[in-house]
Design a protein around this nucleic acid. Structure first.
Lengths: 340, 340
DNA sequence: CTAGCTTCGCGAACCGGTTCGACGAAGTGA
DNA sequence: TCACTTCGTCGAACCGGTTCGCGAAGCTAG
């Protein structure tokens, strides 16, 4: 069943049906009703491929998300969900693209074959060839995160520098003097992931400012690594009384490691970091943290992308978000007498 | 840049280029090389919409997933990831469709407009009009979960009945006599979600078989609800010594509730259920549970769907999975002297 | 030498929409 | 009454691929 059949049954031409549907030229009320009746009767819907071919737009956006090898974090999940819902509001579908092992291949699929009108990129690196590549091609895209040269681009990002610094200040205000930083895995840091770098940076600078003694660690994205990381921290400096993390997936393991070592949170040891609220509330005691507003970020990314798609000449726009620290139950005043 | 330009530069016709690419007719080695050189030079890739229009296949599968209002669980996340990766192996892309508030609308988009060659449905109900609707249309689809009439369909499912029963037997073997069941939220049970129903069923029957005293509860998909649910359980029957859950998102809250009530896991109280291993390992003590093999389920669902798409006449196939219970640290022998 | 078969390439039709130019009918103002 | 608009509709071209039928050239066999 196609537009020709509708036209035939309604006794009009194919173009008239098209105009009746799109409203791009006026069609008399009478013919419009005749056409609509036939459409309703047959349950006709225009073929998406044909439409995309004819007018050059697919009404689909690509979501380039990290490979599963990296375990997904809760934040990514919330994010995907919010992108899909926001896209639906603008009448776009979302095509998932694994930027996994063979990222070139799926990139080619999305862009080269023109499957999507624009793309949202996750897991941005400071020097990100994907971002540069897309900018060169003048292909609409919005990054979740900023590269080292964010001035002119389209992106939505957390201010990891400021958030990590806020965590440090919070701990310093509570009297903590020896603080550890638990980052994402080593490979990600080496690969230049911006959140890992900027978070580390913000932590280090703020700690220096407050005269804290710090150690920084990389930690795998799972509970076992988190536990092992705490062991390393307490081994390297048993006088450590607090940690800051942006590794959501390791959080449960960090708590377990502290419990095993006999450190009570928050009495003997404070924990804070940058984590989606839903997960911060899952652990006991609930985590005092800068809540990642994943839902808002997804929505804003889609809004920006749609804007970019619809007016290709517009200058770059972006949102830098700095959510406040939500005080929950995982931080407290330093006792001054750490367990030996 | 299109196939015509390639043809022109290579000095051949458009059809020859097409055949050289698809290999559906023989093309001399010499012309093939000439064409390939031009293609490589220009970085040509055939337009997906045009191809889809011409041969009637989009090389895309739809993943119909639950609305975000329901908080996503970790299992769903792992699942989405594995579907995307498995699809990529078969050269399919994945289009996400929120079956949210306006599920009809997005359904129409996917199927009516022929955006996808087939669909994978999540969050199946015992009486699921989507499944029936697709079966009537003879549209290729695979369900994650089975309806009340699963005989002839295409699906991949956990045997929630058997798994819940296995949890009961595990607890009964440890000597527990008073056991609670923590289900998904009430609305989902009422709506007929199959995992909630079959899980409850398996639990109830096995408990009767072993002569246990049981109470069953519905619980929201978040930590706060989990905590509150434990309070209810201990209020209703303080002699309860164990619980079984298939509510992953409430798990952290269940643990917190038990800790608040002064019940030590597993000394005073045992917890088990049906949960993805990654999340079972996040809580402390780690959860003894039937591990949801989300990755395997996603892969199998895609394999089935591709099979169904490629041979439309094949009879229904399915996989019913019953992963074993992984013994971790959250269950132990009943003490016989519950805390008053 | 010619009939018959392969191999290789071409042109045209087709998939199902959108859009442009043209044209007849009706309406308007002088 | 005539020139000029406006309105509603149609036919044809186009988007960028795929596929079918045909025919030219080259080979083999009788």
């Amino acid at each position: 069943m196609n537009i020709g059949e509708i036209a035939e049954r309604a006794g009009v031409s194919r173009s008239t049906v098209s105009y009746a549907l799109s409203g791009k030229r006026s069609v008399s009320e009478e013919t419009r009703r005749k056409i609509q009746r036939v459409i309703d009767e047959l349950g006709y819907r225009p073929n998406a491929s044909a439409r995309a071919l004819a007018n050059g737009r697919t009404s689909t956006i690509g979501l380039v998300f990290p490979p599963a090898g990296n375990h997904y974090t809760g934040m990514q999940l919330d994010f995907i969900g919010s992108v899909v819902e926001a896209a639906a509001v603008h009448d776009y579908d979302v095509l998932l693209s694994p930027s996994g092992v063979d990222s070139d291949r799926s990139f080619q699929r999305l862009l080269g074959e023109r499957r999507v009108d624009g793309a949202i990129l996750m897991e941005i690196r400071l020097e990100d060839d994907r971002v540069e590549h897309l900018a060169e091609l003048d292909f609409p895209s919005v990054a979740i995160g900023r590269t080292a040269h964010p001035e002119s681009g389209w992106w939505v990002s957390l201010d990891h520098t400021a958030l990590a610094a806020a965590c440090v200040h919070h701990l310093a205000d509570l009297g903590h003097r020896r603080v550890a930083f638990v980052n994402r895995p080593e490979q990600l840091l080496y690969a230049g992931y911006e959140s890992a770098h900027r978070g580390l940076d913000g932590f280090t600078k703020a700690a220096a400012e407050r005269g804290l003694t710090v150690r920084t660690y990389c930690c795998g994205d799972d509970a076992a690594s988190g536990q092992e990381c705490v062991e390393r921290i307490l081994h390297d400096d048993p006088a450590t009384t607090a940690l800051v993390t942006l590794n959501e997936a390791a959080l449960g393991g960090l708590y377990r490691g502290l419990a095993r070592a006999g450190r009570h949170v928050p009495r003997d040891f404070s924990v804070t970091g940058i984590v989606a609220s839903r997960w911060a509330e899952t652990v006991t005691p609930q985590l005092t943290a800068a809540d990642v507003p994943a839902e808002e970020m997804g929505r804003r990314a889609v809004d920006l992308l749609v804007e970019r798609i619809e007016q290709p000449t517009a200058p770059g726009r972006h949102h830098l978000l700095t959510p406040p620290i939500s005080l929950r139950a995982s931080t407290g005043p330093a006792t001054g007498t750490p367990i030996p």
